[in-house]
Design a protein around this nucleic acid. Structure first.
Lengths: 101, 101
DNA sequence: GCAACAGTTAACCGCGTGGTTCACCGTCAG
DNA sequence: CTGACGGTGAACCACGCGGTTAACTGTTGC
């Protein structure tokens, strides 16, 4: 299930959007402005991020406000920590094995 | 630069390979065995993981041994922690702002 | 030395993804 | 009321990605 988040973060544009939103919420237009991309393209990216559970957006009047979800990256963080733990314990096991011989 | 790792982890097959390798090194054939995929497909995935700096492979005789890199996930972990920190401090700032008013 | 086995390379294919443009809708300001 | 502005939906397109098969190379075991 975490590969959905990874897929969302795989695209440089989407990664930049997340980094931008970590500094605070903003509108879809403001996200598109600094880029060379058209608005519809950015909207598509936002939809992907939203379906990956990384971002929430609300329509306020005619502007769509986008913010990073509080729990956006916990799945990624826990998965990463888990794999690191597994791999490092295996390295430790190898170390003590070499120590014993 | 971290989007390269994310792209590598975006594919379920590649994610499974990483999770498998976190339990210990193995051969390319052994990686392909439990799946329904052909060997060349797995080899391609391995190449992607290798170019993303997540995995190292060495050819020993006629078998290619694959292992997870020790520093495989540090880039991912640090990026994640960084964004979480930014976002949470902004939330904290908002909290104290509300407190003051 | 020969056969089987692990991997590699190349050519090919379908399809999803990232992008565009254009027409349209709702909303805010004057 | 009307015009401009932010966003939406649809149709379309190019390209890369994940997968296949097939033919070939090198290695190992008997």
């Amino acid at each position: 299930m975490v590969h959905r988040q990874f897929a969302a973060l795989a695209d440089p544009t989407r990664l930049a959007i997340v980094e931008r939103l970590a500094r605070g919420p903003t509108s879809a237009g403001d996200l598109a402005a600094p880029t060379t991309m058209s608005l519809p393209a950015v909207l598509k990216h936002l939809r992907v991020l939203e379906e990956a559970g990384l971002v929430t957006t609300v329509k306020r009047g005619r502007v769509r406000e986008c913010r990073l979800r509080d729990d956006a990256l916990v799945a990624v963080a826990t998965w990463t920590a888990q794999q690191q733990a597994l791999w490092s314990t295996r390295l430790d096991a190898l170390g003590t094995l070499l120590e014993d011989t």
